[in-house]
Computed example of a mutant assay.
Amino acid sequence: MDITGNAVVFGGGGGIGRSTALLFSQSGASAVVIADLNLEAAESAAAEAKRVATNPNCRVEALRVDVAVQDSVDSVFQHVTTSIGRIDYCINCAGFPVKTARPTADADVDEFFRVQDINLRGTFFVVRAACAIMRSQKLIPNLAAFPERGSTRGAIVTLGSVLSFGASPYLVQYTTSKHAVLGLTKTAALDHVKDGIRVNCVCSTWVDTNMTKQVCEDVPGLEAILVPSVPMGRIAKAEEIADAIVFLSSPRASFVTGCPFIIDGGTSLSSNR
């Protein structure tokens, strides 16, 4: 997919983020920086990314980050720009699982704002910093052989959800955060399209990750309805979401910005979910 530049993956220690970091490495990236709250998980992912790298000079690093803290996010970007230089692809996969499923009137206030801290504030801090850095970078062709496809200073991908469009009972904290992430993505895309920066949002349904398993343990009865709610008869694999993320980051998506890229096995096609 013509991946030749440097990638930074927030939340890259596990799940979708880990699969994304590995795919960047497998696709020929020059550098992959994996940032996660769990440094041990980030280091494990970095070791695997180094093993599967197809670019023999690929540089892989692991860093600790708390995306809910602006200084923590900014320190990652400062390290990357100082140590590696240009940032071509920035991905935010950091997220916070739902612990309780209740009607809005009974929603846990602390959990509501904790979810916003990670899913929304964290995405804002990452996107804001990435845009600020990328707009000062050199403008380069998307594809040198096809100058008519324009130029780029970088690409950013956020993680939304099918709940960025609709709603689900008892998940006000999660639904609110993902509506906001999509709005943030669209606005950043408009604000920086003239800077040569593309910003897109991958909107998936349930994915087979440890986070999903934890949510199923925390929310009674959820697991029993997940697969039946998907027309394809299964939930997504993390690698399938990573495929879309890397595509949207690549010059193959040179005319795509502000896009909510839905990956849900047909779930959103029916109103009877």
Score class of each variant (00 low, 15 high):
A242N: 04
A129D: 08
S27T: 13
D71W: 06
G150E: 09
D2R: 08
N272G: 10
N119V: 01
G265K: 00
V215R: 01
Q78W: 12
G154Q: 01
S204D: 07
D36Q: 13
A132Q: 14
L269M: 14
R51H: 09
T82K: 15
L182Q: 00
R153H: 02
Q173L: 06
S27F: 05
E48T: 09
S25L: 02
E148F: 11
N55A: 05
K99P: 10
S268A: 11
I241D: 03
A238L: 08
D195G: 08
F165I: 12
I262A: 13
P228N: 01
R234T: 05
S27Q: 13
F125I: 08
A42K: 08
R252L: 15
D74A: 15
I235K: 00
V219E: 04
R198Y: 00
R114M: 02
S75N: 14
C203Y: 07
I262V: 15
Q214M: 14
F125V: 14
Q70L: 13
A236M: 04
A188I: 07
T209Y: 00
R64H: 15
F96P: 01
A7R: 02
L163K: 05
R59N: 09
G13C: 07
G154L: 00
D195S: 13
L226F: 01
D195L: 11
P97G: 09
F124N: 11
R234P: 00
S151R: 04
